[in-house]
């Protein structure tokens, strides 16, 4: 367990995303109505940045081919994507948002 501070919570407004680099590759942090979730940033379909996408509820839609992923589970919800992306544990400490980049995994 190695949670690393990524930002303070007011840096990512609800409905917004933040892209961050890590040893595990780029990770996207999403604010879903005050809850924070982190998944791999690269779309499993077209290798594009998901943090650049449109967040509706807890689904992020890639801007290039409209593939959708659940930001809670990383699972693909719409073609053309069929493969999930990894999720990363997120913690809050005070106003800070932390991600454990070492524990990226596919949700069950």
């Amino acid at each position: 367990m190695a949670f690393v501070r990524v930002c303070s919570e007011d840096e990512v407004a609800p409905g917004e995303a933040l892209r961050t680099e890590s040893a595990a590759g780029p990770v996207a942090l999403f604010n879903v109505d005050g809850e924070f979730f982190a998944i791999e940033d690269t779309c499993s379909h077209g290798q594009w940045s998901l943090s650049d996408g449109y967040l509706t509820g807890d689904q992020i839609e890639c801007t290039l081919h409209m593939a959708k992923f659940c930001v809670r589970t990383g699972k693909a919800c719409s073609l053309p994507a069929t493969k999930a992306v990894k999720v990363f544990p997120v913690q809050r400490q005070g106003c800070d948002v932390l991600i454990d980049f070492e524990d990226g995994h596919f949700a069950a």
């Binding site: 693909a76 919800c77 719409s78 073609l79 053309p80 069929t82 493969k83």
Partner: peptide, 8 residues
């Protein structure tokens, strides 16, 4: 109910 396979 399910995501179809990848046609590509």
């Amino acid at each position: 109910d399910t995501l179809p396979g990848d046609p590509t």
